[in-house]
Amino acid sequence: MPIRTDMTGKSAVVTGAASGLGRGTALALARAGANVLLVDVNATGLEETADQVRALGRQAQVRVTDLAQADNCAAAIAAAVEAFGGLDALCNVAGLIIFSNSADMATADWDKTLAVNLSAPFHLSKAAIPHLLARDGAIVNVTSSAAFIGEAYAAAYCATKAGLNAMTKAMAMEYMKQPIRINAVAPGGMMTNIAANLKMPEGVDYELIKRFSGMRGLVEVDDVAEMIAYLASDAGKGFHGACVTMDRGITAG
């Protein structure tokens, strides 16, 4: 039976939308019929994404903001509700990874990683839930294969992604009896701007890095984006409290 992702007439917020998986998710939602509020700190990238969404015949609103600040998260949701008259989906895609030896990691880098990867999805969800309940909506969090396996030099990233998985399940249980779906997608490595600009710490042991490099290569951004859009739509009504791993077998064993 074919999967049909239909978001016609609905609206969504997508974070990290200036590039990579965030942009791919915004376009997947737009192709499915959704209007989108695009959130990122990269103004130029957001405008490029917005142009592509509008070329698909959908509305796109741009919100240039730093999600490390809780007040900015609430303001982004409010802007989407004002622009579209309500909210049907929140896609928490924005993420940050800073590789470092744990003993050398700057406190500011640790705090920023937690703020963007874990606190921001919470604050966005907190603001969005009342609006999503009104429309039988959905939250889709992007975690990572790093939520399930230890990755050398990525203690902060692994901690936040594992935490986001747990938060997804906890919220799903909390709202088990109410009309909202809360799920996560956990991709493996993808060719995104984040991946292209990664910097390894001095003296890195690449034998350890290879332990979490997929034997089947990188995951396609568009494949993950389509899964996020599917879970955000009514087609994903069978999912609640789930984490869909898309890592080409990295976490299989």
Rank of each mutant, 00 (worst) to 15 (best):
G253I: 07
M227E: 05
Y230G: 09
T5K: 14
F212P: 01
T5A: 11
I139L: 09
Q59A: 13
A115I: 00
F99Y: 13
N101W: 13
A235G: 15
K169D: 07
F99L: 15
V224R: 09
M200P: 02
T8I: 12
F84I: 03
T192V: 12
A138S: 11
A172W: 06
V219D: 00
N193C: 07
L56G: 12
N35D: 10
R63Y: 13
V224H: 03
E174A: 14
T245K: 13
G9H: 05
I139R: 02
C158D: 10
D6E: 03
A134D: 08
Y230Q: 00
S100G: 13
A43W: 04
L231N: 08
I129S: 02
D6T: 08
D136G: 09
T251P: 02
M171A: 06
K169F: 09
G249L: 11
A120L: 08
A26Q: 00
S19C: 10
P187K: 02
G20K: 00
T192P: 06
G203S: 04
G16C: 09
V142H: 12
D6Y: 01
G150F: 14
M7S: 11
A106D: 14
G217I: 01
N141T: 09
A138Q: 02
G253N: 12
G163W: 02
N197M: 06
G24P: 02
N165G: 10
N101D: 12
D111I: 07
M246K: 12
V116F: 02
A147I: 08
I3L: 15
I149C: 04
A195L: 15
A166Y: 08
F122W: 07
S100N: 13
A172K: 01
A138R: 00
N197F: 05
L231E: 07
K210S: 04
A30Y: 01
A235S: 09
A74L: 13
A80Y: 01
G33R: 03
G20V: 07
L38E: 04
R58K: 11
P121W: 03
G137T: 03
L27G: 01
L164Q: 01
A196P: 01
T113C: 10
L87C: 05
Q178S: 14
A120P: 03
T25E: 00
P130Y: 04
V116K: 01
D223G: 10
A18S: 07
A154E: 02
T107S: 15
A60L: 04
T5Y: 14
A34K: 00
A152R: 00
G188P: 00
T245Q: 10
A108F: 14
G241V: 02
D247R: 15
E82L: 09
A108C: 12
N101I: 06
F212W: 15
G236T: 03
A156P: 01
I77A: 08
D109F: 14
R248M: 13
A186F: 15
G249P: 03
S119K: 15
